[in-house]
Design a protein around this nucleic acid. Structure first.
Lengths: 207, 207
DNA sequence: CAAAGAGTGTGCAATATTGAACAGACCACG
DNA sequence: CGTGGTCTGTTCAATATTGCACACTCTTTG
C-alpha cells in the first residue's frame, strides 16, 4: 500500500502518537483522512447524556476520518490510539484528487470501503439479533483474532470490562456477569491478559 | 447518473419487479451489483433461529449487492421490492472494470459507499445508545422523510408494526406499545397510513 | 510508604423487554 | 355472503437488563 500512497504523492505528512492519545475529537472540524501505518485506533462516540460507545477498533491498513469526503464537516467520533501509532495524514482535497486520478489507489480505497461496510453491517446485524451474551462472545473472538500471532496487527487485547461494555453496548455489570460465566465454563481465562478458547464459539453458534 | 452508467457501457441489463418480489435471496450466489432506477428495496437477514431483521431500506440511486465486489460469494441478505421497481443489473466483472476505468463512475460509487457507510454507522450508534422507544421514533422520522413530497423516493410508508419491529430490532409487542403511546401523546396519527408529527422529534432528542 | 486511580467481584431492587396468547377490525376473493 | 389472511389492541408472566452500591486488589505516583 505504501507504494501507492507514495506514487500518489501522499506519503508525506506522517504523525506519531503514544498510547492513549487523541488523534481527533468528536466535534472537531473534519479536514483530513487518516491512514494507519502502525499501531491502532479506537473510535468512540458520546451521547447527549454522556454515555459512550465504541464504534470501531482499527489497525494498520485501515483508514479513518473518511467521513469528511462525504461532506461531513465535523467529526462524529473521537479517535484515540490504543497503542503507539503512526498515521498518514491526507488532506481532504489531496485525497479527492488522488481518488480521481490514481486508478490503483482508488481501487484500493474502494476495496477498503467495501470491507469496512461489511464489517459495520455485521456489527449492526449482531446488535439486531443477538443478546449481550452473544455479542460479548463475538467481540472477544474478534479481538482475539485481531491480536493473533502471524497477524500484522500488534495491538494487544488490553481491554477492560468497562471498554468491552462500550463496544457491545451494555453495562459493565452485564459484561462482568458473562465474563465470569465464560470463565467458569472454561471458555476464557484471564488475570490481566484475556485468553480466549475456541470453545467460546459455541456461545455464538448456539441458538 | 444514468449518463455515467450509459457511457460506462453499463446501461443495458435492466430488470423490472412488481411489489413484494424477491430480487435475490440470502444464500444465493452473489454475482451482480444492482442499481435502483425506480422504486425501492428492503434488505433483510434471517437468523439461524429464524428471527428476521431489516438491515436497510433503499430507493432510487442506491446500489445493493455490492458485497460481491469485496469477495463475498454468497448473498448475506434477501432483497425484496417494496414497490414496483426497476433495477440495473451490473455483472461483477463489468463493475470492477468500470470502477477501474471510468473516473466519473468510480467517483460516484465512492461517494455512494461513503454515504452508505455513514448511514449504517448511524444505525449502529442508534442501536448502541438508544432504547427501543427512541429507535422507533427515529425510524418513523426517517421513513417519513423518505416518502416526503418533493423527494424522488416514491415509496410510501406502508409499514406494518411487524416490519417496524424488524427494522429497529425488537418485538411487535414493544412497537405496538410505543405506537399507542406516541399516538396518545399526539406525536403520530394513523388509521392505515402513518402520519408523523415533528413533535416526535422530542422523543429522540430528550435525554 | 501512603494515597489515589483503575479495574474487578458481588449483590440487589427497579425497569425494560420478550414471547406468547387471544379477540376484534379490515380487506380481498371465490 | 362467508372465509382466510393480515394487521392491530391488549394482556401477562417470565426473563433480561440496568443502575447503583460497596469491598477488594492492583499499580502508579507523589
Amino acid at each position: 500500500m505504501k507504494l501507492f500512497l507514495d506514487s500518489a504523492g501522499l506519503g508525506r505528512k506522517v504523525k506519531t502518537f503514544r498510547r492513549k492519545e487523541t488523534v481527533f475529537a468528536q466535534g472537531n472540524r473534519a479536514k483530513n483522512v487518516m491512514y494507519i501505518q502502525e499501531g491502532g485506533v479506537r473510535l468512540t462516540v458520546v451521547n447527549e447524556s454522556g454515555k459512550e460507545a465504541v464504534v470501531a477498533i482499527l489497525g494498520p491498513g485501515d483508514f479513518f476520518g473518511e467521513g469528511c469526503l462525504a461532506g461531513q464537516s465535523i467529526c462524529i467520533a473521537t479517535a484515540t490510539t490504543i497503542a503507539p501509532t503512526t498515521v498518514l495524514v491526507i488532506e481532504k482535497n489531496e485525497m479527492i484528487r488522488a481518488l480521481h486520478a490514481e486508478h490503483e489507489f482508488s481501487d484500493r480505497f474502494i476495496a477498503y470501503m467495501l470491507a469496512r461496510n461489511i464489517r459495520v453491517e455485521e456489527d449492526l446485524i449482531d446488535q439486531l439479533f443477538n443478546s449481550s451474551e452473544k455479542r460479548l462472545a463475538r467481540t472477544l473472538l474478534l479481538l482475539a483474532r485481531y491480536g493473533a500471532p502471524g497477524d500484522l496487527h500488534q495491538v494487544l487485547p488490553k481491554v477492560s470490562q468497562e471498554m468491552l461494555a462500550k463496544i457491545i453496548g451494555t453495562t459493565r455489570s452485564r459484561v462482568n456477569f458473562f465474563m465470569n460465566k465464560f470463565r467458569k465454563l472454561g471458555f476464557i481465562k484471564y488475570n490481566g491478559e484475556i485468553h480466549v478458547n475456541n470453545s467460546l464459539l459455541s456461545v455464538v453458534l448456539h441458538d
